[in-house]
């Protein structure tokens, strides 16, 4: 009993000190979700993820929009919200805090997919997107 608590603590300390592990964990969680919802799922696709990030579309309100509108075309750069507030870089290589908290990840996917695509994203899309962001060096 005590041993498991100690192990859990050690795990938490490692996670806190090494967020890179935490975003790999989240990608694995998405993988498990994808597998359970789609029997044909094999793996996430980095280039499909980049396509999601870079595809521009016309919003029903008339403006051209994409992820790059706020995050800039370079995931390693700081972006800007429409209310002029700085958005920290989205690529974990420069901002290791990214994709480390499942609640945060889901909250922002829900908001931003609705903003850009006017619908929610699928598990496959979310996984592709994270895989691409983690591949940015």
């Amino acid at each position: 009993m005590k041993m498991t608590i100690i192990l859990k603590l050690v795990f938490l300390i490692i996670m806190a000190k090494n967020p890179a592990l935490a975003n790999e964990t989240i990608l694995k969680d998405f993988e498990a979700l994808a597998k359970s919802s789609d029997a044909k799922f094999i793996k996430f696709n980095i280039s499909a993820g980049e396509k999601i990030f870079r595809t521009e579309r016309i919003h029903s309100k008339g403006d051209k929009i994409s992820c790059m509108t706020c995050h800039t075309p370079d995931p390693k750069k700081t972006g800007l919200t429409r209310a002029n507030k700085v958005i920290e870089p989205i690529a974990p290589v420069v901002n290791p805090e990214r994709f480390t908290d499942m609640i945060k990840v889901n909250k922002w996917f829900k908001r931003n997919c609705n903003d850009v695509l006017e619908r929610e994203c699928t598990i496959q899309e979310k996984g592709d997107f994270i895989a691409y962001m983690m591949s940015v060096k």
């Binding site: 309100k61 429409r82 909250k107 829900k110 908001r111 931003n112 609705n114 903003d115």
Partner: peptide
């Protein structure tokens, strides 16, 4: 909040 000045800002 689902349409917060044109943006989705939904919360738990």
């Amino acid at each position: 909040l689902n349409d917060h000045f044109g943006e989705n800002a939904e919360l738990d």
